[in-house]
Write a protein that binds this DNA or RNA. Sequence first.
DNA 1: CCAATCGTTCAGTACGTTTCGAACGTACTG
DNA 2: CAGTACGTTCGAAACGTACTGAACGATTGG
Lengths: 185, 185
Amino acid sequence: MEDALVRARAELVEALGQQSSFWGVGKVTGALFAVLYLSAEPMTLGDIADALGTSKGNVSTSIRALEHLGMVRRRVHPGDRRVYFEAETDFWEISRRVLSRRQKPEFDRSFALVDQSLGRARAAAPSDEQRFVAERLGSLKAFYDELDGIVALVLVIDPRRLGRLLRAAARVRRSTRPSLRRVPQ
Amino acid sequence: MEDALVRARAELVEALGQQSSFWGVGKVTGALFAVLYLSAEPMTLGDIADALGTSKGNVSTSIRALEHLGMVRRRVHPGDRRVYFEAETDFWEISRRVLSRRQKPEFDRSFALVDQSLGRARAAAPSDEQRFVAERLGSLKAFYDELDGIVALVLVIDPRRLGRLLRAAARVRRSTRPSLRRVPQ
DNA sequence: CCAATCGTTCAGTACGTTTCGAACGTACTG
DNA sequence: CAGTACGTTCGAAACGTACTGAACGATTGG
């Protein structure tokens, strides 16, 4: 029965719709991507609106967000004034872009604030209180520094290399500290 | 002037309050943690409410969320019926817990849905359409698989080892493909 | 040049989430 | 046994965000 395909589609649409907040986008936006991703042919804005059961206006707005994240491409056929949309299929590339365009700036802002706060605390008049606050802020900054380095690296490194690297690291760790191996349920 | 310390505190409170949504908690919750983190002594619920300029009820709710994430500990002194709260200071430990208790389950649910969807698509009656959908879902699942492996690893691995590892990987990459080195602004 | 079709915009609205604050239960004090 | 000092709970309000639907400009074909 062809019905199975329909259900498969519907389920992915729901799945991506649900975890849309993870990417930092609206529910419709996630579902929209799912629809495009599972469509063999590029779709027009009206097609998508129908498939999602929502308004064209909504789709227009959502799709712009996806374009901005590099998750959707726009394609125009000569002699056809409709605009066709199709999904980007390289998820590692998508992740990189989402990370760098959405998460990273936010992270950087926060980082700068912590830095500034630390500077202020260090400049304050010496006291037990001052030393305590400065030390805590120092620890926090150190953490942010490391995290920042990791994120920056993930943005540059090849995902397959990353996978291999981590697997290798895991092997070393397992053989070093076997007590931490996961207990089979 | 002692004022600098006060401002340093206020700035961190604001910083963590702002990026609170990153951890998946409310604004007050992030600010609350900042207050506790910069307090030399453990604080009672009333203290915190005063410091934040919010209600005790609000703090009570928020602090429970932080406890559940392992970001705050509760401590009772014998002969004092007040409850004191103090911040967890090991951020790597915190990250691990937040990741495993909040992000991971959500991720797993989504993962299962994709898996199920793929199963359904593969079971559907063969056709061009069916092959296309099955292939796309297969790619998505492969991506999720890799991602899942990475997350699982990060949850187990020692952060310092991770940092060293990534730095090493970056060095290799830089020397291999110097053209990708970042252009100094 | 008109009608139809397409994507975009925006003000209004519906919805979910966060926050407040009063009421409550409990445990200690005198 | 009051009275007080806690932390908790919960309904109501405030708030922000996502969505709707009509109006609009642009483009194309008749």
